[in-house]
């Protein structure tokens, strides 16, 4: 979780940052649908219970007040900046004169966290695609035979008499062949992704706290090391925010590509 809480101190430091131009991989956000951008914005600013996220900075900004929720395109650069901040290590960001990591780095980090295999030279769009594919696969596996048949029916894939594995394989194969199928499955699976992501996030947090509590036994030296470790850990990317946000961005990119293809 980023260490930059909305405090006088954080405001003081962030005020030195020069306005940076929008990340190249996120510049398409300015052309996205208003409601989709609003969804992305809400992921960044509010938690599942509708409460403001403690570490968000967006809602205090003038640009947010002026444009939310009617002119979200004007808010796109601020949304992109907030996403990158959530995806970057706050200490590293501060050391780089308040410049967060690139979106490509954030997606790579998310893929790594989600155990999605990506190539060293893959660009952001390719990694997003791999992430969505992985999530769809996981989502499809979690469906019952009946649910899988419904999905197959909706995609016009003949599924009569097929086993659960065979239907899942057929849907995945169709997704890989056709971008239209891919988009339709990806969109319909969004809710599955989120529950999957949250479940994994909890497991990771538990594991880390266990390791930290073991470190306390190492005496004063352990304490010194742990102080730094904990600070670094708190400052590290907020995956519970940036994973759903990256998924939303991936879906929006897919949507826009589809619209372009239709046009």
């Amino acid at each position: 979780m980023p260490i930059v809480f909305d405090t006088p101190l954080s405001r003081f430091f962030t005020s030195f940052r020069a306005d940076s131009s929008m990340d190249r991989d996120l510049s398409f956000l300015a052309h996205c649908d208003n409601s989709e951008l609003q969804k992305l914005c809400d992921i960044l600013t509010h938690d599942q219970n509708g409460h403001l996220r403690l570490t968000e900075h967006l809602t205090s900004k003038e640009v947010y007040l002026e444009n939310y929720p009617e002119q979200m395109q004007s808010l796109a650069p601020a949304i992109a900046d907030e996403l990158l901040r959530f995806g970057s290590n706050s200490i590293a960001t501060a050391l780089r004169y308040n410049t967060p990591d690139s979106y490509e780095t954030v997606v790579r980090r998310v893929c790594h966290q989600m155990k999605v295999k990506v190539g060293k030279y893959d660009n952001a769009a390719t990694m997003e695609h791999a992430l969505l594919e992985e999530l769809c696969e996981a989502g499809l596996k979690s469906l019952t035979l009946e649910e899988l048949r419904t999905v197959a029916d909706q995609l016009d894939i003949p599924a009569k008499g097929l086993t659960k594995q065979a239907i899942a394989a057929a849907i995945l194969a169709a997704m890989r062949i056709s971008p239209i199928f891919f988009r339709r499955v990806a969109v319909s699976m969004t809710y599955e992704f989120l529950s999957f992501v949250i479940g994994r996030g909890v497991a990771v947090v538990g594991a880390r706290s266990l390791q930290r509590s073991l470190g306390v036994l190492a005496g004063p030296l352990g304490w010194i090391i742990l102080t730094g470790w904990t600070a670094w850990d708190i400052a590290s990317p907020a995956y519970r925010v940036c994973i759903p946000a990256v998924i939303q961005v991936a879906l929006m990119r897919l949507e826009l590509q589809e619209e372009g293809r239709d046009a």
Partner: peptide, 22 residues
């Protein structure tokens, strides 16, 4: 002054409450 440019302020000034997105 900044908040008075917001949608929230316009909704409140307009009077009857409408459904919000959040």
């Amino acid at each position: 002054h900044c908040w008075c440019k917001s949608w929230q302020y316009r909704q409140l000034i307009a009077g009857p409450k409408k459904e919000t997105a959040l």
